[in-house]
């Protein structure tokens, strides 16, 4: 998967890339799960799906990342595979997502890193012909 970890004194950042925005959202979701837990321990017995929209791409990427944290804390849901479909309307940036996973079982799902919030700290978004790239830092 196309991501790398970034150093920060307090917390942890990730740099993720994708060949288009849909792929970028998918890779972002999958990399958060990859850093958060051992994805091989997650079975697929449930699908979480929804649509998120924001008036900036930056806000949408942060909201999407925070949604994953919220799902673990409140819905006790962990994902194995994230699928995303990105659209841009006149006013909004929109992502439809599906997360394939299951209910979080503390004795079976080994949590490697606890994410508490996605932040705007040193947020960076770069686009070129080949890739869309984003850097997001997380409060741990």
């Amino acid at each position: 998967m196309e991501y790398r970890l970034l150093d920060d004194t307090g917390d942890l950042g990730i740099e993720v890339k994708g060949e288009d925005f849909s792929k970028l959202f998918e890779n972002l979701g999958n990399s958060i799960y990859d850093i958060m837990l051992k994805r091989e321990d997650v079975f697929i017995s449930k699908i979480e799906r929804d649509t998120l929209k924001e008036d900036s791409l930056e806000d949408l990427l942060i909201k999407f990342s925070n949604m994953i944290i919220y799902k673990l804390e409140c819905k006790r849901f962990v994902g194995k595979i994230v699928k995303a479909d990105f659209k841009k309307s006149k006013k909004f940036f929109v992502v439809d997502y599906k997360i394939f996973g299951e209910r979080f079982v503390p004795s079976r799902h080994f949590i490697k890193n606890v994410f508490k919030a996605a932040t705007y700290h040193n947020f960076e978004m770069v686009e070129d012909e080949k890739y869309k790239k984003v850097k997001i830092y997380f409060d741990l």
């Binding site: 508490k116 919030a117 932040t119």
Partner: peptide, 20 residues
């Protein structure tokens, strides 16, 4: 705990939009 984190996240986002 998550309560404070969510409140901070919510308002950082609202303040961002307002300043923009």
């Amino acid at each position: 705990r998550g309560f404070g984190h969510q409140i901070c996240s919510d308002y950082v986002s609202l303040f961002q939009k307002d300043l923009r």
